[in-house]
Design a protein around this nucleic acid. Structure first.
Lengths: 349, 349
DNA sequence: CTGTTAGCGCCTTCAC
DNA sequence: GTGAAGGCGCTAACAG
C-alpha cells in the first residue's frame, strides 16, 4: 500500500540499505551481482527514491526558488522560461512563488523556502532589498534582481533602466520630436522610477518639457493613459512608455482615436516582450533579452551555491544588463529595412 | 555560522524541542511564559523552520508539481499564472518542470517529484497518459491534463478540442465561407489532432473539401503555412488555425502579402490567449479560460490530495472544458459591437 | 566490496 | 503543560 522505502528494497534484495543507496546514487563501488539484485528489487517494488529524505541527508535539494512580485504578462513568463531552461540543464528543479504585494508577504515567502531550496532568485521591487533577503533566508545564497542599481555588495543582476530610458528618448529626439510624453509605471516600482528618471533627464538635457502620465505597467493602463492625453487635447509628437504592454495599450488607444502611428505620434516601449514584434505597427523598444537574463540568473545562482559550499567568494557582484534599442515601425515609418531583428516567438496550443 | 535548528532554540529558551515545536506549529497547548521564551529565542537566533525536515516528519510537503511539455507562449504562462494563484491561496508551493520532449523524459521528471510534492498536475501530450503517470508517481495523487478525452478512469481536466473546432468552423461556414483552410498543430500532439479532426468533420458535414497545412503551434509556423498557401496561389475564404499563435502568424503573413482580413480571408484561432485581443484585426477565437483552468486544476488536485489521505474517493473524474466562440474583427468586419469581450491584460516591466 | 550505525531537522506519541 | 525518545527515508562514514 505505502510506497516502498529503501529498506524494503534492501530486504527484498537481501542486501543492506547502504548497498542499495550505493547502487542508486552511483557513489562507491558495488559488485555486479549485488547491483543486479538491487535493481531487480527496485523494479519489483517500483521503488522511487524519496527526494525529500535524500535532501535531508545530503543537505542539497537540487532546487532553486524564484520569488516574483507577479506573474502577469509576457515579461515574467519569458523570464521563467529562461530560468526553467537553465535549471533543467543544470539538473535543478524550479519552485516559483509570486504575487507578493508587500514586503512582509515576500519575506514570508522567502522564509518558507528554507530547507526547500539551495538558493533563491529574488525579484521584488517592493522589497527593500538586501536586508530582508539576507536576514530572512539564513545562509541561503541569494541572487537579487530587484532593480536596485545601488544595491549593497550582494550578488545581483540589474537592468540599466536609467540608461535605457535615455537611449529611448534620444532616439525619439533624433527623429526630430521634441514634445515627448511618458507613460510611467506603478508608483512603488523601482524600475519604473528609474525609467522615468531617465526620461526626465533626457528631456531636460534636450531642453524639452517632461510630460508624464501614470500607468501601472498593464496594457489597460497604457490605453487609459493615452486616452486621457488625447481627451485633454494633448497631442505629443511621440510617446515613450515605461514598458511594452503600456506601449501596446497606447498604440491601440491611438488606433481607436484615429491617430496614426508613427506618422502622427511615434511610440517606443521597453522590454521587447514577444508581442512587441507582433503588433502593428511593430513596436520600437528597448530590448532586454528576457529569457536570456533568466537563464543567466540561474547560472549565476548555481555558481553562487557552489562557491558558498566551497567557501569561496564571488567575483563579479553586480551584473548590469544594458538594454538595446530595437527600431521598428512604431517610431520610424519605413523601418522595414531596419527591423529585421523581429524575433519569431513560439506558442503551444 | 550554520543556520539555527530547533534544538538551538530549545537550548537557548531552556525548554524542550517538543515545546518549541508546539509553539511553532500551533499544535498542542503551551503555557504563555513558555511560549514567550521560545519566541524570544526564535527571534534571537533568527530561526526559520526547515521545511524539508518538517516534510519528512509530517509526510506533507505543501507543494504541488506541474509537469509541462514546454513553456513557450502565452498559453502556458496563463495556465501557470492561474495555478500559482490557486496554489498560493491554498498555501501551497508550486514546482514547475517543463521541456519534456519524449515520454521517458517526462517520466523521469515525474519520478524525481517523489518526496518533493503532495500531488502532480501532468500536461503531457506526448506521454501516453495514465500508465506512466500512475506507475511512476507511486501513490501520488495525479491530475491529468494531457488532452485525452478517452482517458482511463483517472482524474482529469480536458478541453473539448473536437467540439470547439467544429464550432469554429461552423462559425466560418455560417458567414458564408466554404473554402476553409486549416493550419494544423504539431504531429504528435493529441490536442492538435482533435482540433484537426473537428475541422475535418465540420467540413465534411458541410460538404466542403478539407485543406490542411501543417504547423507546430508557433507563430512562425503559422506565418510560414500561410505564406506557403498564398505562394501556391491558394486563396481560401477563411482560415481556421489550430491555435492563436499560428493564427497571428497567418494574420501577419496576409498583411505582408496585402491580403485583407477579414474582407479577403476570415481567420479564427483557438485558445484566446491575451494577445488575441491585442492584434489588429483582433482575433476571433475559441476561448478557453486558461488561467481559470489552471486555477481549477490546482483546486481539484487539492481535493484529490485531501481525499487520498482521507481514504475517500473522487466523485467527478473527468471534467470537460467547453471552449466558447469569441467573435472579433478577424472573422467579422464590423464586429466592433460584438467584441466587447476583449480582456485587458497586464504586464510588469 | 558490504553491513552497521549515526545522524540530517523536525514532529509526535507517550509518560510524567 | 512539558520532556524524552522514536522515527520519517536516506546518505555517509566507519568498520569488517
Amino acid at each position: 500500500m505505502k510506497p516502498a522505502t529503501i529498506r524494503d528494497v534492501a530486504d527484498l534484495a537481501k542486501v543492506s540499505v547502504a548497498s542499495v543507496s550505493r547502487v542508486l546514487t552511483g557513489a562507491g563501488v558495488v559488485a555486479e551481482p549485488t547491483r543486479m539484485k538491487v535493481l531487480e528489487a527496485v523494479e519489483a517494488l517500483s521503488y522511487v527514491p524519496h527526494s525529500g529524505a535524500r535532501s535531508l541527508s545530503t543537505n542539497r535539494t537540487d532546487t532553486v526558488g524564484v520569488i516574483l512580485p507577479d506573474l502577469f504578462g509576457e515579461f515574467f513568463s519569458e523570464l521563467i522560461r529562461g530560468m526553467d531552461l537553465a535549471a533543467r540543464s543544470a539538473g535543478l528543479h524550479l519552485i516559483v512563488s509570486s504575487s507578493h504585494d508587500d514586503a512582509s508577504d515576500a519575506a514570508a515567502a522567502i522564509r518558507s523556502m528554507r530547507g526547500r531550496v539551495d538558493g533563491l532568485i529574488v525579484l521584488s521591487p517592493h522589497l527593500d532589498a538586501a536586508n530582508l533577503a539576507a536576514n530572512l533566508a539564513g545562509r541561503l545564497p541569494v541572487l537579487l534582481m530587484n532593480g536596485g542599481m545601488n544595491e549593497a555588495g550582494r550578488p545581483s543582476i540589474v537592468v540599466d533602466n536609467h540608461g535605457g530610458a535615455r537611449v529611448a528618448v534620444e532616439h525619439l529626439l533624433s527623429l526630430g520630436h521634441r514634445h515627448i510624453a511618458h507613460i510611467g509605471g506603478p508608483k512603488g516600482n523601482l524600475e519604473a522610477r528609474e525609467r522615468q528618471e531617465g526620461y526626465v533627464e533626457a528631456m531636460r538635457a534636450a531642453g524639452g518639457q517632461p510630460l508624464i502620465v501614470d500607468g501601472d505597467f498593464t496594457q489597460a493602463s497604457g490605453h487609459r493613459a493615452m486616452q486621457a492625453l488625447l481627451a485633454e487635447g494633448v497631442r505629443p509628437e511621440a510617446v515613450f512608455a515605461g514598458n511594452d504592454m503600456m506601449a501596446v495599450g497606447a498604440l491601440l488607444a491611438m488606433q481607436d482615436a484615429g491617430v496614426r502611428v508613427p506618422d502622427d505620434v511615434a511610440v517606443v516601449g521597453f522590454d521587447d516582450v514577444p508581442i512587441a514584434a507582433l503588433v502593428r505597427p511593430a513596436l520600437s523598444t528597448m530590448r532586454i533579452e528576457i529569457a536570456e537574463t533568466g537563464r543567466r540568473a540561474v547560472e549565476r545562482l548555481v555558481t553562487l551555491i557552489a562557491s558558498t559550499s566551497d567557501g569561496g567568494s564571488e567575483s563579479d557582484i553586480r551584473e548590469v544588463i544594458t538594454p538595446r534599442l530595437i527600431v521598428r515601425a512604431s517610431s520610424v515609418g519605413d523601418a522595414a529595412a531596419l527591423s529585421l531583428a523581429a524575433p519569431s516567438t513560439g506558442d503551444r496550443s
